[in-house]
């Protein structure tokens, strides 16, 4: 939708999404449709594709890799031994996902993510229930139910257009600096 989202975080009561563009203005001017955003159709292939590359999956994978003994957790103050090498589990996930997408650890990660972090079936029911019942209300300040979530802001980053746009802007600035000389 081109809103360049940067991250999201959810609690039992609230879901927060933040982005580069002013989402509220986009919703008001119908450039961003809340109905489409919360459409149950989003639960199909798009979700799976996004999930496979998300930090959510990578974090779940880290747990799976740790349980299987593939990597070991390093504790502060404890010296590194031969077996304990700092290995970025994200890199292992990427390599394993590219070459053995059916690997038992990837499969376990998928299941853990589907059950533990998001229950697709319940989510589908919820989306069905709220369809055409969404009220958009821009607020002048944070609502009470949103306070706990604001404390967790930044927890779940989205590495998409929003992040690229940061580099693009920094590149534009360099161009302006160079042109100004």
């Amino acid at each position: 939708m081109g809103a360049q989202p940067l991250g999201f975080v959810a609690s039992d009561y609230a879901l927060a999404i933040w982005g580069v563009s002013d989402l509220s203005v986009m919703i008001k001017s119908n450039r961003l449709s809340l109905e489409n955003l919360f459409s149950a159709e989003m639960l199909g292939d798009d979700l799976e594709e996004w999930l496979d590359e998300s930090s959510l999956m990578k974090r779940t994978f880290r747990n799976c890799a740790m349980i299987s003994g593939l990597i070991e957790r390093r504790h502060p103050g404890k010296e590194k031994t031969g077996r304990q090498i700092t290995m970025n589990s994200d890199l292992i996930y990427d390599v394993l996902y590219a070459h053995e997408p059916d690997h038992i650890l990837i499969e376990a990660t998928r299941r853990d993510a589907a059950k533990g972090l998001l229950d697709i079936e319940r989510l589908g029911q919820c989306l069905e229930r709220i369809r055409r019942n969404i009220v958009h209300m821009p607020l002048g300040q944070i609502s009470p139910l949103a306070v706990p979530i604001m404390l967790e802001i930044g927890k779940e980053p989205i590495f998409g257009e929003g992040r690229e746009s940061a580099m693009a802007e920094a590149a534009d600035e360099l161009f302006r600096e160079a042109a100004g000389h």
Binding site: L70, I71, E72, G82, R83, I85, M87, I92, V95, L96, A98, H99, E100, H103
Partner: peptide, 19 residues
């Protein structure tokens, strides 16, 4: 890199070299 970890008993997927 990954296969060198295997020498120390840490069995990481070895596809990095090929990739």
């Amino acid at each position: 890199k990954m296969s060198s970890f295997a020498m120390h008993g840490q069995l990481l997927p070895p596809y990095d070299t090929g990739a």
